[in-house]
């Protein structure tokens, strides 16, 4: 089974390129069994949402409202 280090590598790479079927399958098996990597996977998406919101000046708009 792939380890967490390899799994996080693949999850990061999936933000830049499409994973192969084999990669997706072994990653899927890993994240099903590993709570930490399951959480990590969610967080990759969240991190992108956060950064894009930040780039759009979301934080500044908030500061101005308060």
């Amino acid at each position: 089974m792939m380890n967490c280090r390899e799994a996080t590598q693949l999850m990061s790479a999936s933000q830049e390129r499409e994973l192969s079927l084999a990669e997706r399958m072994s990653l899927g098996v890993h994240t099903m069994m590993c709570k930490g990597c399951h959480n990590y996977k969610q967080q990759m998406g969240t991190l992108r949402t956060i950064t894009r919101a930040y780039a759009k000046g979301k934080n500044e708009q908030l500061e101005n409202k308060s």
């Binding site: 990597c37 959480n39 990590y40 967080q43 949402t49 979301k58 934080n59 908030l62 308060s66």
Partner: peptide
């Protein structure tokens, strides 16, 4: 080990 982040969208509204 990463933990679940609860409700991440909520955070975006906090300065």
């Amino acid at each position: 080990r990463p933990v679940a982040w609860g409700n991440p969208e909520e955070s975006l509204r906090e300065g």
